[in-house]
Simulated scan of single mutants.
Amino acid sequence: MSPASLAFLVIAGFVSGGVNAVAGGGSLIVFPALLAVGFPPLTANVTNSVAQWPGYVGVVAGTQQELPGQGRRLVLTGVVSAVGSAVGCLLLLVLPGAVFDAVVPVLVLLASALLALQPSIRRWVGAPAEGGPDRNAVLLPAMFLAGVYGGYFGGALGVILVATLALCTHDRLVRLNATKGVLSLIVATVTVVIFAVGAPVVWTAVAVLAPMTLLGGYVGARLARRLSENVLRWSVVVLGVAVGGYLLLT
């Protein structure tokens, strides 16, 4: 890669980590960045998935004060999302590349739509009241499917997770956002292990992106309440729609 491409990926990695912490959808920044520097879609996807892992570590580190009292929820949802992630990774590796090339534009556009609808979803579910039991009969199957999505593609996975948690639990959104960070880290850990063995990961790109997603995730988590979530979210939405449209036409 050229020095300009490396610098471009450094910026994309940092911004991605910050966006994941504040609004979710940061992987929709790194994925098109990798496409822009010449990576094929499948290679860009698996490299992006591996490079996002440190960013989720940063998010968890920045939100850990909201995790006490969520032990049972984290264990149950963590197990099913990990299993789902493994299934999604295996589907990505065993299905023909043409399937991914056909599906990924739809997934990018779907993820962008979910990110755009995030505020509406929050309004629809209302402000959850604390203390009620989680609706695990719905929550756990939904977390499994979210894990499958995260293992296969993963763009805007955080949006899917926090929306599902808000619908199926009774807790403050700031605590659910912390739970989302842990679940995202679990899904990312499974993808790193599987893709490191059987996928075309470009490790030089990971070496550039990973520390920047970590730094961006931590900074974003610490500054989440001071930044304009709307500006970040809509910037990612516009980028995602542009990338999805480009992939559909090429």
Rank of each mutant, 00 (worst) to 15 (best):
Y56Q: 07
G97D: 13
L176Q: 00
V159G: 03
V15G: 02
S49W: 01
A224H: 08
S85L: 09
T63L: 14
P96D: 05
V206T: 07
A163L: 06
L28H: 01
L107C: 13
A178I: 02
G198N: 11
A21C: 08
G216T: 09
G217S: 12
V193Y: 03
G26N: 08
I160G: 01
G24H: 05
N20D: 04
L115C: 11
L176P: 01
V60Q: 04
A224F: 07
G62S: 07
G58Q: 08
V10H: 12
Y152H: 10
A221N: 05
L167C: 09
T179K: 02
N20R: 03
A98S: 15
V60W: 02
P141Q: 12
F144E: 07
V79A: 14
L92W: 09
V138W: 15
A4W: 15
L173P: 04
P32Y: 09
V174A: 14
D101A: 03
A178G: 00
G58Y: 05
L28W: 01
R123D: 12
V125A: 15
A102R: 13
T189D: 02
T204P: 07
A178T: 03
A21D: 00
E66H: 13
L157N: 05
F195P: 03
S184H: 03
P200K: 08
V108Y: 02
G126H: 11
V59F: 09
S5A: 15
V193Q: 00
G24I: 05
P41L: 08
L249V: 14
V37A: 10
A166E: 07
A178W: 01
L34P: 01
F153K: 02
A224D: 07
A102C: 08
A224K: 10
S85E: 08
L232C: 03
C168K: 00
I160W: 06
V10Q: 12
T250I: 14
S81N: 13
V208Q: 03
I29L: 14
N48Q: 09
D101L: 00
A61Q: 12
L161Q: 12
L42R: 13
L139K: 06
G71Q: 12
L42Y: 15
A163Q: 01
L140Q: 09
A116C: 14
T191K: 14
R135I: 07
A146D: 02
V138G: 11
P96Q: 13
A178E: 01
L115W: 04
G97P: 04
A224I: 10
L114S: 04
V106S: 10
L42H: 15
G181H: 00
V231Y: 11
F144Q: 08
L109T: 00
L145A: 11
V50L: 10
A36M: 13
M1S: 10
I29G: 02
L248F: 11
T63S: 15
V15Q: 00
L165E: 06
V30N: 05
V197C: 11
V148M: 05
A113R: 08
P32L: 10
A210F: 04
A210W: 06
V197N: 03
R225F: 14
A205L: 01
H170F: 10
L215F: 12
